[in-house]
Design a protein around this nucleic acid. Structure first.
Lengths: 183, 183
DNA sequence: TTGCTTACTTACTAATCAGTCAGTATCTTT
DNA sequence: AAAGATACTGACTGATTAGTAAGTAAGCAA
């Protein structure tokens, strides 16, 4: 098993979060790993293949988390999700959804589908979490759980974007407020 | 006065919203306007100058709106802002904040400053609108008005991103829910 | 009418881009 | 030991990128 492949995916993930998918190049990957750009093409024939691999890794990690958190209460699960974003906030990076959805129209159909899959997965999970929490009395909110999930994920995503641009503890303020709003 | 300059800005605005700042080229502008790429460089020596001009136009339009809405009630002003995003939703484009903040790290310092200025302007306006509305009894919400402004703008921005990726009337659902939450 | 400014075009350039292909060293399997 | 697969390198390519420098036509002002 080559771990070059995994290193490429990890680096591409970082580059997508910092520069965006369309702004990073094969050289941005081959140079730091001290390999030739042809080696990157060996593992990922074209850029979309690499993008898809990065998204699939993210989906897999998300599913891992979901599986591990299954026995936690809905509000503990929400905290876990917020903690993931907090980690990103500390690293000064943004989430994949926030990085990839603005460039959606420039992607190949296969990659668009993966972006869609990632978005749907996170939103469905959050909607389930919120609905279960409401039924169990952990959460209290008005309206459809899916609409609320859209708003919560929207706030988490944007908190990272705004934090990077405006500085200050915008992530802390937004995550605190969105948690309060659900009680 | 040349209106080529204005046409370039307008087209660049469209391209930033659809492809993103780093993914459009001078050829994407010169070809549709039937001019040479050197003509674009005549008006905007480098790409950052063009980006800054697009952001400045957006800030100017926003200030125009703010000025025109001054005599409206806070909830009517909020509706006007939502209407701007609804228009973008119908055009299947996203907002400049949603398009530019993910690529923030790749911009020149001067352009970063403009992005910051745009974000601050919108958020300050929204915070004032919400605070005034709360004091007048039009709105009811918990916590700091600025935090609430962050969440409202976050939802409007993301509603356009999610709409394009997931289809359906996500904009309608989110804008309706965020309005309800403020009453 | 001379001189200056505006708004370009023509014709480039050097760099960078994603992607290709033939070759090779090193394992692994038979 | 031979054959094949794996994981690359070396040496490219053609397209596209932002950006430049010189020239020009039209308008305007002294």
């Amino acid at each position: 098993m080559s771990n070059t492949r995994e290193k490429i995916i990890e680096l591409a993930d970082q580059l997508i979060r910092t520069k965006g998918f369309n702004a990073f190049s094969y050289a941005d990957i081959s140079a730091p790993l001290d390999i030739k750009n042809a080696a990157v093409h060996y593992h990922f024939p074209n850029k979309a293949d690499l993008g898809i691999a990065v998204i699939e890794q993210e989906i897999a990690r998300l599913n891992d988390g979901i599986h591990q958190w299954k026995k936690l209460s809905p509000d503990a699960r929400l905290k876990k999700m917020i903690a993931i974003f907090q980690q990103r906030y500390k690293q000064r990076t943004i989430c994949l959804v926030g990085s990839l959805t603005p460039d959606y129209d420039t992607f190949s159909p296969a990659m668009q589908q993966k972006v869609q899959e990632m978005c749907k997965g996170i939103l469905d999970w959050m909607a389930d979490c919120l609905e279960e929490g409401r039924e169990a009395g952990n959460f209290s909110f008005e309206g459809d759980a899916y609409d609320r999930a859209l708003m919560v994920m929207s706030n988490l995503m944007s908190s990272l974007l705004y934090s990077r641009v405006l500085g200050g503890n915008i992530f802390g303020r937004m995550s605190k407020q969105l948690s309060k709003d659900l009680i």
